[in-house]
Nucleic acid binder design. Structure first.
Ligand SMILES: [Mn+2]
Ligand SMILES: [Mn+2]
Ligand SMILES: [Zn+2]
Ligand SMILES: [Zn+2]
Lengths: 146, 146
DNA sequence: TCCTACATTGTAATCATTACAAGTTAGGAT
DNA sequence: ATCCTAACTTGTAATGATTACAATGTAGGA
């Protein structure tokens, strides 16, 4: 189950510790863009000896090796993403969920033309996600109530 | 000098205190996207009795009234902007400067088509700004040294 | 199996931000 | 011009995320 992650870590000259494997696996199976504490709290259930510091250390190491990415959208918390290809995000101000938006920024060349050397592209929207928008609509217009 | 800001604050039913006026004025004359402490440190020189808490309070109040915007780009710090129109940013990883990028996101309709209700659009690039890029080039290819 | 460089752990420190309570003031009312 | 009070400022203490550190444990090569 963890084989591909073990290979990945070894390619980067990192030890394949159970903690790191669990963290990578969590990110790959939960596309919720969790923060460090979300991961800590989730893994704690099956690994009670896990330390919060280990989660921070592992995330930092994986980020440095470009195995995962971190995203800064809500102030005061860093969230993590197993996807390392450039893509956009949507933060729902109602349910606090961050979802992926499949977009490619078409302006990169224009910015580079201005003399900027782009290393990372970040785009995100804030607003109300489809699920929350529907719920709100139902509240205000409960026509088709079953 | 502060008249327009006084008017602005009164329109929003806010008291035109010297602290708020200085903070607004600082943001309008320094397009560096400073954080709260930058502003505090700068204004302290002429207003030694200023409190850091006042800076945080004022920024929060102005943000709520949509008189200024806050941006979250570097983890762990909120930076502020007198511009409230939607525009993009560039964070230079060498000199830590955030500069404005004049771009309009052309993908908004596509995202809204997916059922999302967009309230804010944020776009930023990380990399090396033209000034820092030039300095680096000179280091490596010092052909035209005067 | 042994060894040790690399990792994990728990605790203490740090740093940005927020909460709070006491003192001050902007600006409307008189 | 003076009074009054809700709004504001201030200093300090609390909070919450993250980092530093020192002791202990272990992955994985020899
Ligand atoms: Mn993502
Ligand atoms: Mn700006
Ligand atoms: Zn939502
Ligand atoms: Zn620069």
């Amino acid at each position: 189950m963890y084989e591909p992650y073990i290979t990945l870590l070894k390619e980067h000259h990192l030890k394949a510790t159970p903690q790191r494997l669990q963290i990578i696996h969590y990110l790959h199976t939960h596309h919720t863009h969790p923060n460090a504490d979300d991961i800590y709290t989730a893994l704690r259930h099956t690994s009670p000896s896990l330390s919060r510091t280990t989660v921070y250390n592992a995330l930092e190491t994986l980020k440095k090796e470009n195995i995962i990415h971190s995203i800064t959208i809500s102030a005061g918390e860093t969230r993590y993403d197993a996807r390392i290809d450039t893509h956009h995000h949507f933060l729902c101000t109602t349910c606090n969920t961050i979802s992926d938006i499949e977009l490619v920024c078409p302006n990169i060349k224009r910015v580079e033309g201005g003399g900027y050397c782009i290393e990372e592209v970040h785009g995100y929207f804030k607003g109300i996600c489809p699920q929350c928008a529907q719920k709100q609509e139902r509240k205000h217009e409960p026509k088709d109530a079953a």
